[in-house]
Design a protein around this nucleic acid. Structure first.
Length: 111
DNA sequence: TGCTTGACATAAT
DNA sequence: CATTATGCCAAGC
């Protein structure tokens, strides 16, 4: 069986997303939509979140710098990662509002 | 093969 | 600025 060359060339969209997330400078945050756009997946904001969800905690990807358009940490189904995320961001100098929101006006990563 | 769910975004109200 | 409704696309079942 001549192993045909019909294998899915899926360059793991996740890999692309991770690459973009890694590009986020320290002390700054980006929205899912922004990451999706920069990753060439304009409109796949949801997939970005999916990819990050699959991201193992040992990964060197600063997933904590990715937040939703409201400037808040997306409420996940389970896990205490959202607390860790806030902690990490605060550790980088990102200021949080009393409502637990980040001032995108100030910290939004501007390409 | 088709329906449901999901770490979202944007526009309208 | 909050809430509601709709859109988009991929993965899971």
């Amino acid at each position: 069986m001549p192993l045909s060359d019909s294998r899915p060339p899926t360059p793991d969209s996740r890999t692309r997303i991770y690459a973009v997330v890694k590009r986020i400078p320290r002390g700054r945050v980006a929205t899912y939509g922004q990451v999706a756009t920069l990753a060439g997946l304009d409109g796949h904001a949801r997939q970005v979140g999916y990819a990050l969800h699959d991201l193992p905690p040992r990964s060197n990807v600063p997933w904590h710098r990715v937040i939703n358009a409201r400037g808040e940490i997306s409420p996940r189904s389970a896990g205490d990662s959202h607390e860790l995320q806030r902690m990490l961001l605060e550790g980088e100098g990102v200021d949080f509002s009393l409502d637990g929101r980040v001032e995108l006006k100030k910290y939004r990563w501007k390409r």
